[in-house]
Design a protein around this nucleic acid. Structure first.
Lengths: 136, 136
DNA sequence: GTAGATGCAAAGTATTTGCGACAAG
DNA sequence: CTTGTCGCAAATACTTTGCATCTAC
């Protein structure tokens, strides 16, 4: 997280309104994966007049500019997180909802290989693991 | 596909109504991954009086009984397919929407290993690859 | 100054549900 | 018979959009 979202917006030529600055700040400071509603709550604490429509429009915009990514985990609303240089996947605790981020280079490599095997260039992928904590 | 969905229902003690038989039959004969709307269309051709609410209720029921699985591919409606003994993942052509099923034992193994590394038992997972056909 | 952003409420989608009528076991 | 299912329409949940107003550049 070397650069803030606000800086990324400037770098990419995204117009910065007050509302966007607040949303950018909240997302930059979030280490979890809030859904739009939760993001709206957090943002409302800073400026209670921001509408949820703006939040929806902004996350969508940021997603298009490669600033945020959207996740659609099992049976829920869409959740967002800041897109960082380092790609990672998610391990979700189905009991608590806790989300652990992980990277596994080997899996990454194998995915590319599978795509190639079928004559495809891999442009994106989604890997989610759902687990329960081991009783130890 | 040794057993039809109807047979699975009997085996699992799911009450079989006319509507469920039709939905079961259509799903058994589908080799793609229809969404509820598409399934409703197919079912309607056989019995035009079946309501979409029943289709929703039935796929949900079948999912609970482990007869169908639900997929939530990128930015779309939920899609269903018959759950077969042989697990597989999906490679989705982002241009055409075509879906290729694949299995990679090595990736499966690695997933389990990742979960274990964090102290979890893997109970489910989702792997989707999105690609574009290579120009050859 | 002007193109694009915002807030609001209304409209869209996808899916679920209450309820009286009906059918399977 | 009795419990669970069906069809219908209304309700819900999430997300998008039209429009008049406002704001960043």
């Amino acid at each position: 997280m070397s650069e803030t979202i606000e800086q990324k917006c400037i770098a990419k030529g995204v117009k910065l309104t007050d509302q966007r600055k607040i949303i950018a700040k909240v997302m930059s400071e979030s280490n979890d994966h809030p859904d739009v509603d939760e993001l709206y709550n957090r943002v409302s604490k800073i400026d209670s007049k921001i509408s949820i429509a703006t939040v929806y429009r902004t996350v969508k915009l940021f997603e298009e500019y490669g600033i945020l990514t959207k996740h659609e985990f099992k049976g829920g609303k869409a959740r967002y997180e800041e897109l960082s240089e380092s790609h990672h996947d998610h391990l979700i605790d189905i009991k608590s909802g806790e989300i652990i981020e992980f990277v596994d280079q080997e899996i990454e490599k194998l995915q590319k290989k599978v795509a190639e095997k079928y004559g495809y260039d891999l442009v994106d992928h989604k890997l989610e693991l759902y687990g329960v904590k081991k009783k130890s």
